[in-house]
Computed example of a mutant assay.
Amino acid sequence: MKRCFYLFFAAIGLLFSCQSQTNTEETGTDSTSVAESGVQLIPIQTPKGEFRVWTKTVGANPTMKVLLLHGGPGMTHEQYGIFEDYFPQENIEFILYDQLGSFYSDQPEDSTLWTIDRFVDEVEQVRVALDLDKDNFYLYGQSWGGMLAMEYAFKHQENLKGMVISNMMASLDDYEKYAKEVLGPQMPEEVYKEVMEIERKGDFENPRYMQLLAEHHYPFHVLRKPMNEWPVLAVKTMEHVNPNVYVFMQGHSEFGITPGASLKGWDVKAELKNIAVPTLVIGATHDTMDPAHMEWMSKELPNGSFLLCPNGSHLSQYDDPEHFFPGLIRFIKEVDSGKF
């Protein structure tokens, strides 16, 4: 765990202390509470033994069930709290889910578990446990969750009814290029120069790094509101990140993947043509990810469609819900009715 993460998330917690609320979600310690709350603790088999991951099902629909893969890696289901304001009234069932290493799920301290292939296998075990199949199973992934969704589809698309890749590109090298050549220069010149100098030195424990990002990057490209106005659940998913997972896979940089991080060099552009299931790609004009690249992805997918959130950023469900949710709901229902 790195000091820069603690400094940043401690500052976030202090900033939002007036909004803080007790987490009252029942994690389900007996069969009655699990049944009543929709919570299920699913045993997952791994090369390092059995662990449990937390899921919570909201609603019930035999043909529209959406499993939500959170970002990070190592963040939490809380980024999808706002879905409860939109999906239930549309009769769309959805499943909140903390991946292994995240929040309510077990958090083993073994970095050999933090691989794409093992996470794909975990998602498959969750699918089986929740009785999801090609007649009802929609897989939604945002950011790292979008990477995981693509990787799952490469291996198990026969189990999918539909898929959503939200705010995620198909190449991390292309993401880094966009971040450094397009987003970075949008900062004041002296600020971006200082950020890049910190990155060049690898001085990520310098609190100045997160201070600059919190002022000049996050409120413009992660969630387009002043940080003291961010929704509580968006803040909590950052507060509750597991740095062990995040740093090992992603690294420290907000302008690419840190050298040595396990996701470095990930690129599946050439493989997108192999995903045949109906797929919606969601991008946003102010995203940390290149919206033009995400629109291109939708055209590479044989049954792809693109949704642009013109007022949104990386968490466009929060800063552009007026475009995000109608487009997402329309896709799910069109696939369900056979009109897609």
Rank of each mutant, 00 (worst) to 15 (best):
Y178D: 13
L160F: 09
R200T: 14
N242Q: 07
L41F: 07
T112D: 06
V195T: 12
A270C: 02
K155L: 10
G74I: 00
M147I: 15
W230A: 04
T29W: 12
M147Q: 08
S298L: 04
G146W: 01
Y138D: 08
V120W: 00
G59A: 08
I95E: 03
M169R: 13
K264H: 06
I42W: 00
N274M: 14
S253L: 00
N159I: 03
E189S: 12
P62R: 15
M187Q: 11
A170L: 07
N91E: 13
P278H: 06
Q79Y: 05
E229W: 01
E189H: 08
L308N: 05
T112Q: 03
E189W: 02
Y175Q: 15
E181N: 12
E190K: 08
Q40V: 12
Q19V: 02
S102C: 09
N136W: 04
H286I: 08
A261M: 05
A270V: 07
P243A: 02
G283R: 03
M64F: 00
R208V: 05
I198E: 03
I275R: 03
D131A: 15
E122F: 03
N311L: 10
L328P: 03
M294Q: 14
W266I: 10
A276C: 09
T115Q: 00
Y246D: 10
S33K: 11
Y138K: 05
D133Y: 02
M1H: 07
H70E: 03
V222S: 05
M297I: 14
K134I: 06
Q211C: 11
K65S: 00
L183A: 05
T288H: 07
W230K: 00
A60Q: 14
Q186T: 15
L308I: 05
L272G: 09
E84I: 11
I275C: 04
I92D: 07
E109I: 00
D106M: 01
P321V: 06
E158R: 04
S337Y: 01
M150Y: 10
M249P: 00
Q250K: 14
G101E: 08
I12S: 09
A179S: 15
R224I: 01
N91L: 05
E26T: 11
V335Q: 10
S31G: 03
M169C: 14
G101A: 03
L67D: 01
H221Y: 10
M227I: 09
V247H: 06
F8L: 11
E229D: 04
K155D: 06
K193W: 01
K177P: 02
L301F: 14
D174S: 12
F103T: 01
K56V: 13
I257F: 02
P259S: 12
D135K: 14
F154C: 10
Q40F: 13
G265V: 09
P326S: 06
